[in-house]
Amino acid sequence: MPVIVIASPKGGAGKSTTAILLATELALAGARTVLFDCDPNRSVSIWASRKKLPKNIEFINDVGESEIIRAIKHHDTDGKIVIVDLEGVASRLVSRAISQADLVITPMRGTTLDATIGARALALVAEEEEALGREIRHAVVFTMTRAIRSNQHKGIEVSLKGQGVDVIDPPLMERAAYSALFEFGGNLRDLPPQGNMEGAISNAIEFARAVYQRLAEPVEAAA
């Protein structure tokens, strides 16, 4: 079953938020998901500790580079979607996890710094594809996006698309509810009202649907 690796060597790009939103929305959509927290900052573990895990979600933490491949393989079984949240550094843990991925998602804010550092993850995917002789689908999702996008953000998006990079639409918007997940745990429906809840939920559903579509279509249709 599909393995989704959330990777960017840039810290604060929104990897953990992306992983949790994806896991919780796919779980609500009926998929059994296994969520790995491989980030020493343990952001996903904080979320997991707040409340009983939502239905259909299994949580794994404390996986280091020596165990990551076997751990992913152990859970990469029929009927499950594996989601791996990685640390925000350029480490061997990242390259090993990517070797097992069906889809690598690189979250980035619409800033030059995020794009520059995030591009290293895209380069790593290309390098591993060549080294391992298999295609690894990858995509970028913009995070913490505001309704009115900056010229910098627009420029980066145009540049990525121009280079053939798959940019997930919709981006993840900047929503108070997404930050609140780390305070309250659970999924977006469990939260006490946080700003524009309708917008947050709708955005998360559409994002998860866009990822699901990528997992459901043949690889050759990806490019």
Partner: peptide, 18 residues
């Protein structure tokens, strides 16, 4: 929100041999 999530059809998911 009353919005319903979409439904995942596990059978449609593609995975590559790793």
């Amino acid at each position: 929100s009353e919005q319903q999530p979409f439904s995942v059809d596990i059978g449609k998911l593609r995975t590559a041999a790793k």
